[in-house]
Amino acid sequence: MRFASPKQSAARRTMLRLQLTSMIDVIFLLLIFFMTTTTLSSPESRLSTGLQTERDDSARAADFQPQVVEARLVDGAPAFVLGQRVFRDKASLTRTLRELPKEAGVFVRVSGDVRVEWVAGALQSCEDAGFARVNYVPAK
């Protein structure tokens, strides 16, 4: 006849009780919190530029003929202006800017009568064209 050892019978009687209810409550609360807050903020990006004024003489002397991109009203509608050329969309401005020398950088001047999206459009075109030095010059 084989008898159970005292150790085996003790193990059978041992009970492990964990109160998990409160932990699960908290974890669900956290999950709901993160699910609701993550929808609040949409991803954002940046367009870094230098800032200069037209009366900044030291900067003007240091820069050798940079390109000047303007955004202003032409015939009553907003447009980008590069020298004598007028661009109604950002893609054509970017294409033209890509062919220009980049060493001297580019100045962006935006007239006060257009909206901010034209500021961003002009800066984005310069970025896409490969200009490393982009300066924003506030128009008077």
Partner: peptide, 22 residues
């Protein structure tokens, strides 16, 4: 933006970032 930029240059700011939404 122009008025703000003008005043910021006077205050000594030489660069900024414009926020965009991809």
């Amino acid at each position: 933006v122009n008025t703000l930029a003008d005043r910021l240059v006077e205050a000594g700011v030489r660069s900024w970032r414009l926020g965009t939404e991809p």
